[in-house]
Each structure stands twice: as structure tokens, then as C-alpha cells.
């Protein structure tokens, strides 16, 4: 049972980002629509125009939520997470405005790893299931530098269909929080609530048919904070396992295009749109391999059906992540 003050912090760190996203997103939809910040939704026959980016609503709400946890706990780890969110959000916004190259984006996101490194908000003893902690005093800081670019880009690559990235983050953040509670990292577990709250509120507008897209500012920020939470909370392996569908998606994509490239520059599309707004896999051997293309291998599906299949995969990897947490820190009593 949480002490009363922690219970209040938990409630506030969930409620504030949730309400902030619910208020800011419709405002953003109005503003972007008025100013022409619209993009086509390519997975629908009539190609409706959808406001983009919704990232600023996500970034502000996450900063508010993490600020609540920081003010209540004074934790250096949470301060690092606040900075990670701010830096990744700023890079995402620059990317939304100027479209950074496929190589520059991950390079800039290394800046997002620095707060964790400089504030010493990590342990170089990652814990593994069955055989426990290992000491990685030299190599861990190097891995940490690329961790935030990797998680943010990995989550960014799953932002392909209506509602997928926000729904995916909600599902995979739950085992992360479970693992932290199992490990006794209550403060960082509290810092996980804003990402769940903000994604949940954004999902209301992002689900099929999307009223707004998060853009790179939204998806990169969510991915960077997710990675930061896994590192600062010391639940790296659990974080990796829950993220496996998105990791496989990145692996499929990179191993088929064989370079870091902005997805807009890929000529061969992995999927095509059929009548009735159904999606089909491209049978072209040179088209990039993606998770969506693989899900469509057995025949066409609607966008909603594909999203549901991705959520099933996320739920399955989250279950494996929970098993990993139990194998690492024991069975909760």
C-alpha cells in the first residue's frame, strides 16, 4: 500500500497529463486546421486531410506529469526524465518542421541520452532473468548513449496507422511499471504514469479514424521517455522485451533497405490500398519488409484490423515482459 502522499502524487501524475492532453489536443486540432498544418491520410481512399503534429500536446502533458513527480520526490532520475522528454520533444518538433535526414535524426537524439549520463541517473548493473545482475562499468555508458536514439526511432517506426503508436505505448508501458514496482523502484514507477495517461488521452483523438497525427515530435518523445524510464528504473531487459514488436519492425525494415533512411524517401511501398479501404501487402521483392506488411502476408485487412493485430502482438510481448520481470525479481506476494 502506498503512503497517502505517494497516492496523491500518483493520482496527480496521472490526472494532470491526462487532462492536459484532453484539453490541448482539440486546441491543436483547431489551430493546425486553421493554419493549414494538414497531411493526407494515405490509408484511406478519399485521402482525408488530418492535422499534424499532435506532438506538442503530448510533450507539454508529459513535462507537466514528470514535473509533478519531480516536485513531489526531488528524484534526480525523474529530473533526467524531464530533460530527456524536453530534448527529444524539441528534436521531434524540428523534424516535423524541417524533416531531418534518416542519419541526422538518431545522431541528434544522442543529446537525449546525455541527461541520464550526466546526472548519473543509471546503474551499470543491469539485471537479467535467472542469473541476476552483471557489471558493465565501461560498456554501459556507451550503450546508454545510443539507447535513447534507438528506442525513440523504434517507436517512431511503429507510427504507421491510425491509433497504433499511442495504443502500443499504453500497452507496453504497463509491464515496465509492473517491473519497477516489483523491483521496489516506486518513484520511477510513478514517473511511468504520465506516459500512460498522455498516450491514453491522445489515443481518444488518434484512434481510427484519426482526428490528429502525433508526428515525429509525438512518437519520438514517447519512445525517448519509454527508453529513459527503462534505464532510470533499471528494468532495461523488461523494456526491451515489451518493445519487441517494434524492435522486430525496425530490424525487418533496416535489414531490407540496408541503410538509415527517412521512410518518406522509400520509393517502393510495403503496402498498397485496395477498394473498401483495405490494405494489402506488396509482393514486390524490393519493397521494405515491415510488421504491417508481414501481418498482411495472408491477405488484405482493414486498417482497424491491422491495428488490432499489432495490439495483440504488443499484449503478447508485454506478457513475456511480465514473465521476464517475475523471473528477475521474484513472484509478487
Amino acid at each position: 500500500m502506498l503512503p497517502i502522499n505517494l497516492t496523491i502524487v500518483a493520482l496527480l501524475s496521472f490526472a494532470i497529463p491526462f487532462i492536459a492532453t484532453l484539453i490541448l489536443t482539440p486546441l491543436l486540432i483547431k489551430t493546425l486546421t486553421k493554419r493549414g498544418g494538414l497531411v493526407q491520410d494515405y490509408h484511406k481512399a478519399n485521402k482525408p486531410l488530418v492535422p499534424k503534429p499532435g506532438g506538442p500536446a503530448i510533450i507539454i502533458s508529459l513535462l507537466l506529469g514528470e514535473a509533478v513527480v519531480y516536485l513531489a520526490t526531488g528524484s534526480t532520475g525523474v529530473l533526467a526524465l524531464l530533460l530527456v522528454t524536453g530534448i527529444a520533444g524539441a528534436i521531434g518538433l524540428i523534424d516535423d518542421i524541417y524533416t531531418l535526414s534518416g542519419a541526422l535524426k538518431p545522431a541528434l537524439l544522442i543529446l537525449g541520452s546525455l541527461p541520464i549520463l550526466l546526472l548519473d541517473a543509471y546503474s551499470f548493473h543491469p539485471e537479467f532473468p535467472l542469473f541476476g545482475a552483471v557489471r558493465l562499468s565501461i560498456i554501459y555508458p556507451l550503450i546508454l548513449l545510443i539507447a535513447i536514439p534507438v528506442t525513440s526511432n523504434t517507436v517512431n517506426t511503429i507510427d504507421v496507422l491510425n491509433g497504433v503508436v499511442s495504443g502500443f505505448i499504453i500497452i507496453i508501458s504497463i509491464p515496465l511499471m509492473f517491473a519497477m514496482l516489483l523491483k521496489g523502484e516506486t518513484t520511477i514507477a510513478l514517473a511511468t504514469l504520465p506516459i500512460i495517461a498522455s498516450s491514453l488521452a491522445f489515443y481518444v483523438f488518434h484512434r481510427f479514424p484519426s482526428k490528429i497525427f502525433p508526428g515525429d515530435s509525438g512518437s519520438l518523445t514517447l519512445g525517448a521517455l519509454y527508453g529513459g524510464l527503462a534505464i532510470v528504473g533499471g528494468v532495461e531487459v523488461v523494456g526491451i522485451v515489451a518493445l519487441l514488436p517494434a524492435i522486430l519492425n525496425s530490424f525487418f525494415f533496416l535489414s531490407s533497405v540496408r541503410r538509415f533512411v527517412e521512410h518518406r524517401k522509400i520509393k517502393q511501398r510495403p503496402t498498397k490500398l485496395l477498394e473498401g479501404d483495405r490494405l494489402a501487402a506488396s509482393r514486390n521483392g524490393s519493397a521494405p519488409v515491415t510488421l504491417v506488411r508481414m501481418l498482411l502476408a495472408d491477405g488484405p485487412l482493414t486498417e482497424q484490423q491491422v491495428a488490432r493485430e499489432i495490439f495483440k502482438l504488443a499484449a503478447f510481448s508485454s506478457l513475456l515482459a511480465v514473465i521476464t520481470a517475475i523471473l528477475t525479481w521474484g513472484v509478487p506476494l
Partner: peptide, 10 residues
């Protein structure tokens, strides 16, 4: 069934 091979891969 469509998801099954990907579950195996995961």
C-alpha cells in the same frame, strides 16, 4: 492464425 508466426518470432 495470421498473428501466430509473428508470435513465434517474438
Amino acid at each position: 492464425l495470421r498473428t501466430f508466426p509473428l508470435l513465434v518470432l517474438i
